[in-house]
Design a protein around this nucleic acid. Structure first.
Lengths: 206, 206
DNA sequence: GAAAAAATGTGACAGATGTCACAAACTTTG
DNA sequence: CAAAGTTTGTGACATCTGTCACATTTTTTC
């Protein structure tokens, strides 16, 4: 079974190769170190599974995956991640990745690859619990039709998080009065009455 | 490695036992046929993984899982499902199940169990793609844990529609002062600060 | 650099909001 | 029925909110 390993950090890539080949059932015919290499190596080797870091210079894992899946929709791509990059989970999911697992999780990686080959999708420990939350802050609302600028958008988001004017002022380095003025203008533009209606508007339009 | 198998349908349970033990690495010390049995067998056998049908008479897999996870939060529970019962996915997910896989997927089940033992969460083929959609179908929020009664729920809904106290009072045939008191109590119970946070809470929890 | 435009700020005001202590009306329970 | 509990209401109060007119500062444009 061929597994292509791609990671920015050569040490990680080599370690993974060692771990995977230790079981005797997997072969790692090449190591890549960027998204660009991933695409090229995938084409030439046609591995059963692609195990790839999600963050890389030159071309991110996500971009590479998009490219590869465009040409090979059946590709089995498993992302490697650290604890820190939650925000990519949803993108990876929508892209059609077969999983999202933690680099730290050495013993867990080989079984994960097996499971993917068996047609499953795999997510590292805590990740699944986060998916519902991450999906909530999904799509961007299109404010363009309402003549709402960036700063106003930012204020809308903070109102929709339940912050009061003083807190919003602190976060944006404005005075409380200015925030009040902004909100006044926003309410006028959206034909709403108060900040609660603004929060409601925010959640209903997404 | 001990795997407890629980399925309504004895044929399925026996088949699973055969498949899992074929590899030589897994042992299936018992077969259960209901949620109730699952709970009892889990207690007596303490398996490494519990593989359980989600729909069963007597006590559903979900209820059994809830019970087991209450006592053993580290329990590794994997649900078996057919194509038809999508609606349970989200519940299983929130409950803390380690996966949700398809019965049909014979070859995939053993690797899935391995992956779960390796600390991963596993989802059968198409299931992951459905999660975003399923999460959108706003389920009823469970207020029971917060000691929120029906009238209070109604008021929460009206606040979340953006109505002011006077409007809420009119709709519920209460005085404005009473509505204020209600909201005051609700905010206290939910540990929120103001009506906007209440509206935010409402939309974030569904 | 001066003029114009945009962003930010201030202060005053009215009204809405949330809290609290307590009262009145109604319902349930013994 | 009486006591106890629940629901609904009131009034006072401090605070937050939204509006407005206008001032100040910063940035853009010519």
């Amino acid at each position: 079974m061929k597994v292509l390993v791609v990671d920015d950090d050569n040490l990680v890539a080599v370690s993974l190769k060692t771990i995977l080949e230790a079981g005797g059932r997997m072969e790692v015919p090449a190591l890549g170190h960027s998204g660009r290499e991933a695409v090229a190596l995938y084409e030439s080797l046609r591995p059963d599974v692609l195990l790839m870091d999600i963050r890389m210079a030159e071309m991110s894992g996500l971009e590479a995956a998009e490219e590869i899946l465009k040409r090979h929709p059946e590709a089995k791509i498993l992302f490697l991640t650290t604890f820190s990059d939650d925000e990519y989970i949803v993108k990876a999911l929508n892209l059609g990745a077969k999983g999202y697992i933690l680099k730290q999780d050495f013993e867990g990686i080989a079984p994960a690859i097996d499971a993917v080959l068996g047609g499953q999708s795999v997510f590292g420990g805590e990740i699944v619990g986060k998916i519902p939350v991450l999906l909530q802050n999904k799509e961007e609302f299109d404010y363009s039709q309402y003549d709402i600028n960036e700063k106003e958008q930012k204020i809308i988001e903070l109102v929709a998080e339940g912050f009061c004017n003083r807190e919003i002022a602190e976060q944006l380095f404005l005075s409380e009065g200015t925030v009040r003025n902004y909100i006044s203008v926003i309410l006028e533009k959206l034909a709403l009455r108060d900040r609660t209606q603004l929060a409601v508007f925010y959640y209903k339009n997404r």
